[in-house]
Simulated scan of single mutants.
Amino acid sequence: MPEPAQSRMPGRRRGWSRKRKRMVAVLALVGGLGVATALVLNAFSDNLVFFHSPSDVVEQHVAAGKRFRIGGLVEAGSVKKDGLVTEFDVTDLKHTVHVRYTGLLPDLFREGQGVVAAGQLDPGGQFVATEVLAKHDEKYMPPEVAAALKKSGRWNEGEGHMPAPAKSGS
Rank of each mutant, 00 (worst) to 15 (best):
E3G: 04
M9A: 12
R12A: 13
R12V: 15
R13K: 14
R13I: 09
R13L: 14
R14E: 15
S17E: 11
S17G: 14
K19P: 00
R20F: 01
M23R: 13
V24F: 08
V24I: 14
L33Q: 02
L33K: 00
G34S: 13
L39Q: 08
V40E: 00
N42D: 12
A43F: 03
F44C: 02
S45P: 00
D46V: 07
N47I: 04
V49P: 03
P54T: 05
S55G: 09
V57D: 06
V57L: 04
A63M: 06
G65Q: 12
G71T: 04
L73Y: 04
L73A: 11
V74K: 01
E75Q: 15
V79I: 12
K80Y: 00
K81P: 04
D82P: 01
T86M: 06
D89H: 03
T91V: 10
L93D: 05
L93T: 07
L93A: 08
H95F: 06
T96P: 01
V97Q: 08
H98C: 00
T102L: 09
T102F: 05
L104F: 07
P106D: 06
D107S: 13
L108E: 09
R110T: 12
Q113Y: 15
G114W: 02
G114A: 10
V116D: 04
V116T: 08
A118C: 03
Q120K: 12
D122S: 13
D122M: 08
V128A: 06
T130I: 03
T130Y: 00
T130N: 05
V132C: 03
V132D: 11
V132E: 11
Y140I: 03
P142T: 00
A146R: 15
A148M: 01
A148R: 01
S152G: 13
R154V: 11
W155F: 06
W155C: 10
W155H: 08
N156V: 03
N156S: 09
E157S: 07
G158L: 11
G160Y: 02
M162R: 15
P163T: 05
P165L: 10
G169V: 07
S170C: 01
